[in-house]
Design a protein around this nucleic acid. Structure first.
Lengths: 193, 193
DNA sequence: TAGATTAGAACGACCGTTCGGTCTGGAACA
DNA sequence: TGTTCCAGACCGAACGGTCGTTCTAATCTA
């Protein structure tokens, strides 16, 4: 059984290696044997901590989403206005993409439903709900135009997310922070009153 | 050898089936045997028309990109101002996502570098270049603020693309056309002077 | 008939998973 | 304290199945 609570050393070694390999080669191009070789861990250890390959990927995904949720909650708590919150969220996403591209790639790039059949799409996740909450607050306060919330969320953060994708694809000519101010400005102009 | 030029009946049967299966189950969850069964075609036929599974996926991808390029060129030719072009492009993308979700899914959803190692990212494709050309024209004419072109492209079309992703994930509450006007409006406000 | 096309059995390689086993630390007992 | 015992942690060879690909023969077509 996967001991969800206990964080043994091997368990996190496995998760770290899996994140690296999954995000670089993709889920289907990474075998359990690969993970074991790279992590210096036996096959038995993997199957001791995780029910199977799917469950390993899912544990990783839940981990990433949980971290993301904490960070976003924090931002909402630290900033009062919708405008400041949007700017801070985009800055955070850019920073995360710079520091931990593997996390970003795993969250954005992977087609999770291909290997986690019952996985909900990103659009129904808790972090996404926080983005929506941020925008809906702006609409209520009159800072944001009375748009459909889904349209407003994507208008506000879609550009930033796409910029991050370009960054991860190595297509961007400049380092990511170079585009931060303009991206924030466009995002706010798209939805502001 | 793959007879790239000749369009035999079987070849397009194979391509159609591959598109359907790839876009629903994903590349790695679709075997050549699956395609043969569904298309009512023999394995030999597949390997007569395509060098291997990768090449089949690549042929499909090139096909889709070519169609996309034709459609976008057409739009640029039919509309004079940047504003009208942006609106028309978003309307076209929405229409395509509604009529041929499989094409859209295959282009947007698939992680092509996972099975086409040397594939260029979408950000370097011809259709993307056309989007950029549209925006750069707007900047030159003074209709669009003098932004970095990459930021402006993503600000203009990122929201629309994300809305389409939500639609393909089945997360949208209303049918896609319901969101068209607001999406166009947000896009233009993000970049206009 | 020559060449293009289609058929499908067969093969080898890989991959996820299983399972019988070893090791270790500490609880229970004398 | 010394001994026994056990459960959780970890190991890795082996298995069964699938998949991409090959190959030879059959069939069509011009």
């Amino acid at each position: 059984m996967a001991t969800a609570g206990k964080n043994t050393k091997l368990r996190s070694q496995i998760l770290d290696t899996a994140l690296r390999l999954f995000s670089h080669r993709g889920y289907f191009n990474t075998s359990i044997h690969d993970i074991c070789r790279e992590a210096g861990v036996s096959i038995g250890a993997v199957y001791h901590h995780f029910a199977n390959k799917d469950a390993l990927a899912r544990a990783l995904f839940d981990d990433m989403l949980a971290r993301m949720e904490v960070a976003l909650s924090d931002i909402l708590a630290c900033h009062a206005t919708c405008h400041k919150r949007c700017d801070a969220i985009i800055a955070f996403l850019f920073a995360l993409a710079g520091q931990s591209p593997e996390i970003m790639r795993y969250i954005l790039d992977a087609r999770h439903h291909e290997f986690m059949p019952e996985a909900k799409p990103l659009g129904t996740s808790r972090p996404y709900a926080l983005l929506r909450q941020c925008i809906e607050g702006g609409i209520r306060s009159g800072a944001v135009r009375p748009l459909d919330p889904q349209v407003a969320v994507e208008a506000a953060f879609g550009g930033a997310i796409r910029m991050i994708q370009l960054h991860l694809d190595g297509v961007l000519e400049q380092p990511l922070p170079h585009y931060l101010t303009q991206t924030q400005e466009c995002a706010w102009r798209a939805i502001r009153i």
